[in-house]
Every structure is written in structure tokens, then in C-alpha cells.
């Protein structure tokens, strides 16, 4: 098992290196420069700034410097934002994003699984139909529309929650819901489909023939088997949360990574863009690793495949 994890970590590092390289060169190819907007600077001043940030060095030298910094955990210094180290910016901003993402994932998957389960048990009942409607709405309406709607109804009109910004738990509720609706819909749809299929399988009949009570059939024999395929969509779901956070954080003015990313792109703050990209990439890869490990935990057929051999 440890060997398996070590190997995976090695692949992770390799992937990160490739992404770092790709994003570095993409930044170089992109038109525009961090100085574009500031027309008031004289040529001389611009020259000084370019020199200061090493932007006049040949590209290979810049690349080597960048990698050298990366290895030491130094993502460079932001071109904007008062020359703060990028690492510092990310550390300051990861809290709200992580909290939101976590809350949304928990709320979305638990409610979604519950909803899908109910729909599968009470098939073709009002519960089933409402679950389908929620699933359709959740998957088809973009989260920013939903976020705006929530903001308008529950914050502006009803005044139950703060409109935006960050601080207390109340501030997290609306963005969490906005972010959770998509994973909730996915989980509900998936759970229902899988449960219906699983409940028709032969081993469920075997369990019934043993005299297992209906609750045991559904929870002990059904749900676990239905959840295995759900793990496969957990990955895309979590990725959706990360990208979704860029929009949601912007709408609710939450000082998180997503909002930072969007702002940095607007002003061509290369080091911050690259740092954020790397962080996102790291998040994705980590999630994939966790999902693979989770798979082994829940599905005995996969458990031994990579590990003890």
C-alpha cells in the first residue's frame, strides 16, 4: 500500500512539473503584458520594472529561475498586489475557498444521495418526480444564475442572509447552496439510477430469499453497491466545485482563490496566475488520488489491485 501511494505521489509531482512548465510557456506566448494598463509610465520606468522582475532575461533563464523557486516552495512575487509573495496570497485566500468547497461537497453529496435514495425507493411517486425536477434544474441552470437568484431572493428581498462578503457562518450559507446545487443534482440522479439497477440484481433476490428486512436490503445490500459508481462522478463533481468557485466567489465577493484567480487574469499578474493554476492542479490531482483510494476502500474487487502485490 505504501509503495502504491509513493508511486502515486511521484506521478503527482511529475504532473505538477508538466503543468508548471506548460503554464509558464503559455504565459510567455500570451499577448499583453502586466504593464499594458498603466500607460502613464514612461518607457524608462517600464524598463526599470521589467528589469526588476527579471522579465528582460532570456526565456530559458526565466524558466530556470521559476523552477528553482518552485522547488523551494517560492512561487515568485506578485506583479500587482503590493509585491506580496504569491505563496502568501494563496495561503491567505485558501481558507474561504476550502471551507466553501468542503461545505458544498458535504451538503451536495449527502442531500443528493438521500434524495436519489428516496426517489429509488418510492419510484414514480411525488418524491421521485420532485427529485427529478431538482436534478434537472441543478444540472441545467448555471450556478451563477442560481447564485444571483439566491442572492436576490434571500438576501436582498427577504434579508435572511448577508448579500455578500465574508466573515460569519451566515456569509457562507448562500454561496454554499449555490455551489452545492450542481453536485447535489448529479448525486441524486446517479444514486437513483444505480439504486434502481442494483435493486434488480440477483444478489438482492438472494438477500430477500434469506429473509433480510427491506431496510437491510436497501441500506446494507443496495446502497453500498450503488455508491461505487457514484465515486467515479465524485471527481468531476469536485472539479466542478473548484471551477464553480471562481464564479461564485466573484458574485458573493468572497476573498478566496477563485476570486483571486479571476482578478489576476484581468490584470495579467503572471506569477499569481501560475501559482493559482498550480494550486488548482494540485487540488485536482489530490482529489483523483483520494478517489482512487476511496474506491479500494469501498469496493473489495479493486482493493488489492495496486497495493499488496
Amino acid at each position: 500500500m505504501t509503495r502504491y501511494i509513493l508511486r502515486r505521489v511521484w506521478y503527482m509531482l511529475l504532473t505538477l512539473f508538466i503543468i508548471a512548465t506548460a503554464s509558464f510557456f503559455l504565459m510567455k506566448i500570451l499577448p499583453g503584458s502586466p504593464l499594458n494598463a498603466e500607460d502613464k509610465l514612461s518607457e524608462e520606468q517600464k524598463e526599470i520594472i521589467l528589469e526588476k522582475y527579471g522579465l528582460n532575461d532570456p526565456v530559458p533563464v526565466q524558466y530556470a529561475k521559476y523552477l528553482g523557486g518552485l522547488v523551494q516552495g517560492d512561487l515568485g512575487v506578485s506583479f500587482k498586489f503590493d509585491n506580496t509573495p504569491v505563496t502568501q496570497i494563496l495561503v491567505d485566500r485558501i481558507g474561504p475557498s476550502a471551507l466553501l468547497g468542503f461545505q458544498a461537497l458535504i451538503v451536495g453529496s449527502i442531500l443528493g444521495i438521500f434524495l436519489g435514495l428516496m426517489a429509488s425507493i418510492f419510484r414514480n411517486s411525488p418524491i421521485d418526480f420532485s427529485s427529478t425536477i431538482i436534478a434537472v434544474i441543478g444540472t441545467s441552470i448555471p450556478s451563477f444564475v442560481f447564485a444571483g437568484l439566491l442572492q436576490y431572493v434571500f438576501a436582498v428581498k427577504l434579508g435572511w442572509f448577508p448579500v455578500a462578503l465574508w466573515g460569519t457562518f451566515e456569509h457562507t450559507i448562500l454561496p454554499t447552496i449555490a455551489l452545492a446545487i450542481h453536485p447535489l443534482a448529479t448525486a441524486a440522479r446517479f444514486t437513483r439510477t444505480e439504486m434502481v439497477e442494483v435493486l434488480h440484481s440477483n444478489y438482492i433476490i438472494t438477500a430477500r430469499a434469506k429473509g433480510v428486512a427491506e431496510s437491510g436490503i436497501i441500506l446494507k445490500h443496495g446502497l453500498r453497491n450503488a455508491l461505487i459508481p457514484l465515486i467515479t462522478v465524485l471527481g468531476p463533481m469536485a472539479v466542478g466545485l473548484m471551477t464553480g468557485s471562481m464564479v461564485i466567489e466573484q458574485i458573493f465577493a468572497i476573498p478566496g482563490i477563485g476570486e483571486q484567480f479571476v482578478t489576476s487574469v484581468m490584470v495579467n499578474d503572471y506569477p499569481t496566475i501560475m501559482g493559482t493554476t498550480l494550486l488548482f492542479a494540485f487540488g485536482f490531482i489530490l482529489i483523483i488520488l483520494i478517489i482512487d483510494l476511496l474506491y479500494g476502500l469501498i469496493d473489495p474487487r479493486i482493493r488489492l489491485a495496486g497495493g499488496s502485490k
Partner: peptide, 11 residues
Amino acid sequence: FQDPMSSLNPT
């Protein structure tokens, strides 16, 4: 039952 491959709970 007939099919032993599918009549046991895989998990």
C-alpha cells in the same frame, strides 16, 4: 439460484 456469479453480494 441459477447463476452463482451474480447471486452473491460483491461487496
